[in-house]
Design a protein around this nucleic acid. Structure first.
Lengths: 201, 201
DNA sequence: TGGATTCCATACGCACGAGTATGGAGCGCT
DNA sequence: AGCGCTCCATACTCGTGCGTATGGAATCCA
């Protein structure tokens, strides 16, 4: 569990072994709370209870609640890139990158929980620019991937937009809306259908 | 403006000509407020100010704030279907229905404001079942449309899911995130690209 | 070991928004 | 005219959650 990936040290979130807390501990706890309960549930006293301390601790590390949100979002944004992108870029054949990307993203649902939670928190002014940057970068990544796969300029860009929109919409519909409880086989079939229709042969 | 479509009477939202209010007036005002400011901004005193009355009026028509939300959502759900669907079903050639649907949906952005606002309010327990029902119906409509266009059973269903996910994601990315400020020409090109890739030739 | 610094607890104040109580103005009906 | 019902205003209570003030414990360092 806890399988996100923030925090540099292991052995976090163990109830008895709590000594002193750092700002990063609060940010990590905030991110896990967001991924489980949404941004709206981010309250300082609730977080403090969960960490076994009181508000007094919090307001030593952060000036305000918004400051924590800001820091947590920044942390998430900086951490979240790098991994999958570099893995995909390591694939030699450009025409194999997109299908592989689709399949990997589809089978690692855990890292998308925060993104999905942030998606339904687009009311908040602080998350909008973060999501805008992240979505822009990912769409650009898809854009170059489609170009490397042999598509023309304008088509590659629109295909990238369409692909990312499908990703976002899928998260909303199946993750947070839990719409058509897909079985494992149905889900795989859906992914393969996506690959077949969105990726040029 | 105000161009949604609730309320049976015309002449609503005129400041001086206010006599007595009905429950429907509150529901309509709630929906317009939601489409402009989001569900989180739905406060009874704010609504009352906007309608030129006080809370005393509100709590005569509704037992609680949640009751208003519930009623407004119900109203929106019942009103919002019928129109476009029946228009599309009137098109004789089944293979022309999907492109026409895409183009019509793309050029009537106004009715999607509420849906987009509800999309970023999926935290709230009351909106989840409503959005689930609406999304389910629309996806099923797409499913039959794809079958009528000549696709096989499983492919038609997955294509319908993919299409609707792209729609939802587009709303999130461009509407609420305002991501790549598309010009009118770019937007049309994107829609045509969608038609070309998602609809079988 | 004593002092400075870091981290945390306790106890407040305060704003905001939902819900309640109660009385009053307007209209229909006889 | 008088009564009753509908709709609304005013003035509260109350819970919740942010932020503050201040003192105490733990840790580091000279």
């Amino acid at each position: 569990m806890r399988g996100l990936g923030y925090h540099t040290e292991m052995n976090v979130r163990q109830k008895p072994e709590r000594t002193r807390l750092s700002a990063e501990d609060w940010e990590d706890a905030a991110l896990t709370l967001i991924s489980e309960q949404g941004v709206g549930a981010l309250a300082v006293e609730a977080l403090a209870r969960q960490l076994g301390v009181t508000k007094g601790s919090f307001y030593w590390h952060f000036r305000t609640r918004e400051a924590l949100l800001q820091a947590a979002l920044e942390r998430w944004e900086q951490y979240g890139e790098r991994e999958i992108i570099s893995q995909i870029e390591a694939i030699p054949d450009p025409r194999e990158r997109l299908p592989e990307l689709f399949r990997r993203v589809a089978h690692e649902l855990q890292p998308h929980r925060v993104y999905a939670a942030l998606l339904k928190a687009l009311d908040h002014p602080l998350v909008v620019p973060v999501m805008a940057r992240v979505s822009k970068r990912r769409t650009e990544f898809l854009h170059t991937a489609y170009k490397q796969a042999g598509m023309e300029g304008a088509d590659a860009l629109n295909r990238a937009r369409l692909t990312y929109a499908a990703y976002v919409g899928f998260l909303q519909l199946n993750f947070t809306l839990g719409l058509p409880r897909l079985s494992h086989e149905e889900f795989d079939a859906y992914v393969e259908h996506m690959i077949a229709t969105l990726i040029p042969a």
